[in-house]
Simulated scan of single mutants.
Amino acid sequence: MTTRLISMKAISLAALLTLFALPTLAQDQTEYQAKLEALQATIQKLQNELNDAKSQRDSLDVELKRNESEISKLMQDIERINKQLAAEKKS
C-alpha cells in the first residue's frame, strides 16, 4: 500500500470514530446539562429555605428582645411592689 492510501484510510478511520463518538458526546453533554440543572434547582431550593430560616430567626430575635424587655419591666414592678409591701408592714 502506498503512503497516500494508508493516510486516506487513517483519515477515514478517524472520521468514522468521530462520527461514532459524537452521539456519545452529545448524550454525555445532555446528561451533564440535566444534572447541572437539577443541582442548580436544589441549590436554589436550599437558598430559599436558608433565606426563610434567616427571616424567621430575625423575627424570633425581635420577639425575644421584646419579651426580655417586658420581663425586665415586670421584675422591676415586682421589686417595687415588694418594697411597698415591706414598707406597709413596718408602718
Score class of each variant (00 low, 15 high):
14 A>V: 09
57 R>E: 15
23 P>H: 01
78 I>K: 12
63 E>I: 08
30 T>Q: 01
49 E>A: 03
60 L>W: 03
23 P>R: 00
72 S>V: 02
79 E>N: 13
69 S>L: 00
19 L>H: 06
40 Q>D: 08
14 A>S: 10
37 E>P: 02
44 Q>S: 03
34 A>I: 02
75 M>L: 02
58 D>I: 00
90 K>R: 13
43 I>P: 04
91 S>Y: 12
63 E>A: 02
67 N>P: 02
49 E>G: 06
44 Q>T: 05
17 L>R: 14
60 L>Y: 04
76 Q>K: 08
82 N>M: 14
61 D>A: 14
64 L>T: 08
36 L>K: 03
3 T>E: 15
60 L>T: 00
41 A>N: 05
10 A>Q: 04
41 A>R: 07
49 E>M: 02
64 L>G: 13
80 R>S: 07
53 A>G: 07
66 R>C: 07
68 E>Y: 01
20 F>P: 02
25 L>Q: 07
13 L>E: 15
7 S>A: 04
10 A>G: 06
22 L>Q: 08
24 T>P: 00
83 K>R: 14
48 N>P: 13
62 V>S: 06
73 K>A: 12
90 K>V: 11
67 N>S: 06
76 Q>M: 04
65 K>E: 14
88 E>K: 13
21 A>S: 04
58 D>A: 05
47 Q>S: 06
7 S>V: 01
38 A>W: 04
64 L>M: 10
70 E>R: 08
87 A>Q: 02
53 A>L: 10
19 L>Q: 11
46 L>C: 11
90 K>N: 10
5 L>W: 12
15 A>I: 15
75 M>S: 05
61 D>C: 11
84 Q>Y: 14
79 E>L: 10
38 A>N: 14
16 L>C: 05
66 R>H: 09
80 R>H: 11
21 A>L: 05
1 M>G: 08
74 L>W: 01
3 T>C: 11
11 I>A: 15
79 E>H: 10
89 K>Q: 12
91 S>W: 15
67 N>W: 09
56 Q>N: 15
1 M>Q: 02
57 R>V: 12
54 K>N: 10
4 R>S: 15
50 L>G: 08
34 A>G: 02
77 D>R: 05
55 S>T: 05
89 K>S: 14
29 Q>T: 00
71 I>D: 05
56 Q>L: 15
41 A>E: 07
11 I>N: 10
14 A>K: 15
8 M>H: 13
33 Q>K: 13
32 Y>Q: 01
52 D>Y: 09
30 T>Y: 01
78 I>F: 14
51 N>L: 09
12 S>C: 13
37 E>F: 03
27 Q>T: 04
51 N>R: 14
42 T>Q: 13
14 A>G: 03
55 S>D: 10
41 A>Q: 12
89 K>A: 11
40 Q>H: 10
28 D>M: 01
61 D>W: 12
73 K>N: 06
53 A>S: 15
79 E>M: 08
27 Q>A: 01
24 T>I: 04
25 L>G: 07
81 I>C: 01
10 A>F: 01
8 M>C: 13
71 I>E: 01
53 A>F: 03
42 T>Y: 10
37 E>G: 06
62 V>F: 06
9 K>L: 07
91 S>Q: 15
42 T>N: 14
87 A>G: 10
38 A>F: 05
77 D>E: 07
4 R>K: 13
81 I>P: 07
17 L>Y: 12
24 T>R: 05
1 M>N: 02
63 E>L: 02
